[in-house]
Design a protein around this nucleic acid. Sequence first.
DNA 1: TTCCGGGACT
DNA 2: AGTCCCGGAA
Length: 392
Amino acid sequence: MTNSTADTPHFDKADLKSFRAKLKRWYKVSKRDLPWRKTSDAYRIWLSEIMLQQTTVAAVIPYYERFLNQFPSVHELAEAPESEVLKLWEGLGYYSRARNIHKTAKLIAQEFSGDFPQSADDLQKLPGIGRYTAGAISSFAFNRPAPIVEANTQRLYARLLAYEDSLQATSAQKQLWNFAEEIVPQRDPGEFNQALMELGSQICKPVDPACGACPISKFCLAFQQGRQEEIPRPKMKTELTDVVHLCVALKKGSKYLLQQYAEGERWAGLWDFVRWEQNDFPATLQTVRNKCDTTSSGLFEDTELYAREFARIEQLLADRYQLNAKLTDFRLSIRHGVTRFRISLMCFAGEYVKGSVKTISPSARWVSKSELAEYPLSKTGRKFAESLIASE
DNA sequence: TTCCGGGACT
DNA sequence: AGTCCCGGAA
């Protein structure tokens, strides 16, 4: 094997044959028994691959099982309302995936008479299916020799080639796809691709790769050079921006006010309590409260702080939404990350007094405690809802 | 507590 | 280039 340019082969014929044979033998005894490996049904393969985008295997498994239980085929999925799909996706994150599978299911049912296209090129035209997912479905479900490059295989290829430069560059991606194209066999390409990913995730790990247990280490240039820890080059990280969000569970009688995030917004299609960004708000009320709970000396000051901040939030509700409300408690503070943002979410409870809730959002509606369970909420929305229900 | 990993779309 | 989310490891 030579470290050559993109348009010449990286393996000679004999090496490639040996590489494939060793990989195949390893996979046969090492493959994990995952739910989506029991089938070659394109619907199931597709569903699993979409769920696995940016998501770990352990997180996906229960969602996958529940989803199939509810929607055994693409037809049931196509017939369902989007809200039901979002509800099943609740907590998994990247909710555009849920909206896209619903769109795609409708397309497949209505325009493709229920059958997925088999070629990677055609699959890639469907919403939510990029080049990797198209190659995965085409090879796993239809045994077409389509190349794949995703996180695990990308790292594996980079080490095999001792690829020096940043993998994010367009030229790097081009070379990795070319390499994947070169090595994918005509015979059992699906099994081959799965074996590559399994090797990438279980052996060729990001940190402390298990080269001693790797069946193809003799073909690996990074291993030969003892540089498997430094290749691939770590991608430069974008720094996080701190933001503060305020959230108010407004109550009218026994009902809570919910609003639905609009298309194009973060959490589009999901529901939440009234919530907005307020970066000039102190993100430290939690610590203040903890201090207040444990010592009595600071109580007066803290009470004063609370009164001041409550009044300010009431004013914000009035200014932003022409809504009169009386804040009653500070309930909890949640920190969570969304892409490049680190959000401190301060959750309050309050009583509705007067004003139109439609100024908050046209979708705003009053929802009983039991109905709260039916609405798809973000992880933080659900956490707040649970805590409200628990304390009633 | 912070850090890190994981594809598609615009 | 920037956006979308959460779980689990460190």
